[in-house]
Design a protein around this nucleic acid. Structure first.
Length: 496
DNA sequence: CTTAGGG
DNA sequence: CCCTAAG
C-alpha cells in the first residue's frame, strides 16, 4: 500500500543497475502483489516491468490487461495523493508517476542487459545515457510514455528466450556503437536512433492501436518530460496534447523531425548539467530530484565518454575548453570522476559551481581550479576536528561525499594552506597590518578554529616552521606534545 | 591505495 | 593543483 515508498525506491534504485532486479521484488512485495493480481500470468518471481511488457508483447489479445495495469498505477497514485491531502495534487501525482515509470524503465534496461551480455558495456551506457532523452523525443511528440517503454521492451526482452529476435538487439547495439564513437555529439545520434527503434517497434506491434488504453498517461507525463528537459518548459504544448489521440504516424513523423534537427550542442549539454544542478537545489521538489540527478549524471557520463574517446585533450574541438572545464585528459582524474560521478548528487554546494578558468588552455597544470568556499573550509575543519589530521580519506568520504571534486589530497593541501594562512596571519598581525592575500577572505572564526586544530593536530613537517607560530598562539590544553612527539603519535592516540 | 612532501 | 615517493 505504501506507494510513496515504493516509488521512492523505484527512483532510488536507478543507479544501482544490477542490483535492482534482486532487490526489487523482496523490497516491494506487497505492492508487487497488486500488479501481479492485475496480470493474468505473473512471470516467475521476476515481477518487473520487463515481465509486464514482455507479456504485453507476447499476448496480443490481452492488451487490455496492460490498460488495467495502468489504471492500477493510476489508482494507486491517486489514492495515495488523496491521502496526503496535498493541494498540489496534480503536480505531485505527476512527479510520482514519473518516478514510477522511471523506476520501471530502469528495470527494463536491466533486463535488456541481462539478456545481452555481449555488448553489455556499451549497451548499458547507451541505455543509461539516452533512455530518457529518447523517451522524451518520442514522448513529447507522440504522447504516451508507456509507448516508449513498450517499444524498447519489444526489442530487448525478446532476446533471452527467442532465437531469432536477438537480431534486433544486435542491430541496436551495433547502431549505438557508432554514435558513441562520435564522442561529443553522441547524444544526438543516439536519440534519433532510439527513436527509430521505438517507432519500428510500434509499427510492428499489433497492440499499438490499443495504446489508447493507457493514453491517460500521456498528457501528464509529457508535461513532466518537458519539465525534465527543462530547456523549454513547454507549458503551452501540453494543452494541445491533452485531448488528441496521437497516432503512430504522428509518432513516426515526429521521430523523423527529431532526427533531422535535434542536435544537442555542447553548450546544450553543459548548460543542461549546470542548470540541472543549480535548479534542483533551489526549486525542485524532493520527489523530482532523483530523476533530475540521473539526467545530470547521464550527461556527465556522456561527457566522460566523449572525453575518453578523444586521445588527446587538445584535439577536442575549439569550444571544448568552455564546454568541458575539466577536460584535461588525465587518466587519474577521469578515473576519479568516473568513480564518484554517481555519488555526485547535484552538489548541494553548487554555490561554488564556478570554476576558475582564468588560466587558459595550454600546459596549465591547474586547469580546473575550484575556489574553496567558506562552507567547504568549515566542513574541512569540522572533519579534521573529528577525525584528526591525516585521515583525509575519511573526511572526504563523510563530509565531502557530495563534492566529487576535492580529493583527499585536495583536502590535505587545503589544510596545509590553512595552516600556513593562520600562521601567516598571526605573524603579520604581530609585525604589521599588511595582510597576506591568502587570508583576505578568511573569517576570523575559521582562522581561530584552524589555529586551535593546529595546536591539537600538528601537521607533519610543517611543525618546524609552524611551531614558532603555534607556540605563540598559546598552548590551550596541550600538555607537552611539542617536539619529540611526532604527529604520528598524536594521530595514533586519537585513533585508539 | 593512502599519505606525505615538494613543486 | 600536480607529481612522486614511501608505507
Amino acid at each position: 500500500m505504501d506507494w510513496d515508498e515504493y516509488m521512492r525506491r523505484c527512483s532510488t534504485k536507478k543507479c544501482q543497475r544490477v542490483q535492482v532486479d534482486e532487490s526489487f521484488v523482496p523490497a516491494l512485495q506487497d505492492d508487487v502483489m497488486e500488479v501481479e493480481h492485475l496480470l493474468a500470468e505473473p512471470r516467475n518471481d521476476h515481477v518487473s516491468v520487463d515481465g509486464i511488457l514482455y507479456f504485453h508483447e507476447e499476448n496480443l489479445g490481452k492488451c487490455y490487461d496492460i490498460g488495467n495495469l495502468s489504471c492500477g498505477f493510476e489508482f494507486g497514485l491517486k489514492t495515495n495523493i488523496g491521502g496526503l491531502g496535498s493541494p498540489k495534487t496534480q503536480d505531485a501525482k505527476d512527479d510520482l508517476k514519473l518516478e514510477v515509470l522511471d523506476g520501471l524503465l530502469d528495470d527494463v534496461k536491466i533486463d535488456g542487459l541481462h539478456a545481452t551480455d555481449a555488448f553489455s558495456g556499451a549497451y548499458e551506457d547507451y541505455l543509461l545515457a539516452d533512455f530518457e532523452s529518447a523517451d522524451k523525443a518520442c514522448g513529447r511528440k507522440s504522447g504516451p510514455y508507456g509507448q516508449s517503454v513498450t517499444g524498447n521492451s519489444g526489442s530487448e526482452s525478446h532476446s533471452p528466450g527467442l532465437s531469432g529476435s536477438s537480431i534486433g538487439v544486435g542491430g541496436t547495439s551495433e547502431s549505438i556503437k557508432q554514435p558513441i564513437a562520435q564522442s561529443e555529439c553522441s547524444n544526438d545520434s543516439l536519440d534519433t536512433r532510439v527513436t527509430c527503434d521505438l517507432n519500428g517497434a510500434f509499427r510492428n506491434n499489433p497492440c499499438q492501436p490499443s495504446n489508447g488504453d493507457h493514453m491517460h498517461l500521456s498528457p501528464l507525463d509529457t508535461q513532466h518530460l518537458n519539465e525534465l528537459d527543462n530547456d523549454h518548459p513547454s507549458t503551452g504544448s501540453i494543452a494541445s496534447h491533452e485531448n488528441e489521440t496521437v497516432s503512430a504516424e504522428a509518432c513516426h513523423t515526429a521521430a523523423l523531425r527529431e532526427k533531422r534537427f535535434r542536435r544537442p550542442t555542447q553548450r546544450y549539454i553543459e548548460e543542461f548539467s549546470n542548470l540541472r544542478s543549480k535548479e534542483k537545489v533551489s526549486t525542485a521538489a524532493t520527489k523530482n530530484k532523483e530523476s533530475g540527478t540521473k539526467l545530470h549524471n547521464d550527461l556527465h557520463h556522456i561527457r566522460l565518454r566523449a572525453l575518453r574517446k578523444i586521445p588527446d585533450g587538445k584535439t577536442i574541438c575549439g569550444t571544448s575548453d568552455v564546454a568541458f572545464p575539466e577536460s584535461k585528459i588525465h587518466s587519474r582524474h577521469l578515473k576519479k570522476e568516473e568513480l564518484e560521478y554517481d555519488e555526485e548528487p547535484f552538489a548541494s554546494e553548487s554555490e561554488d559551481e564556478f570554476v576558475t578558468t582564468k588560466r587558459s588552455r595550454k600546459n596549465d597544470r591547474r586547469k580546473h581550479q575550484r575556489m574553496w568556499t567558506l562552507s567547504e573550509v568549515n566542513k574541512l575543519v569540522d572533519g579534521i576536528s573529528e577525525y584528526g589530521v591525516g585521515r583525509w580519506t575519511d573526511i572526504k568520504r563523510v563530509l565531502f561525499a557530495s563534492t566529487s571534486y576535492r580529493t583527499p589530497i585536495d583536502l590535505r593541501d587545503k589544510w596545509r594552506n590553512l595552516l600556513r594562512a593562520s600562521c601567516a596571519q598571526k605573524f603579520n598581525k604581530k609585525q604589521s597590518e599588511k595582510q597576506e592575500p591568502a587570508l583576505r577572505s578568511l573569517p576570523l572564526a575559521v582562522l581561530r578554529r584552524v589555529r586551535e586544530l593546529a595546536n591539537i593536530h600538528p601537521y607533519p613537517r610543517e611543525r618546524s616552521s609552524k611551531k614558532s607560530c603555534i607556540g605563540q598562539v598559546g598552548s590551550l590544553s596541550l600538555p607537552s606534545q611539542s617536539s619529540s612527539h611526532s604527529k604520528r603519535n598524536v594521530r595514533r592516540n586519537k585513533c585508539t
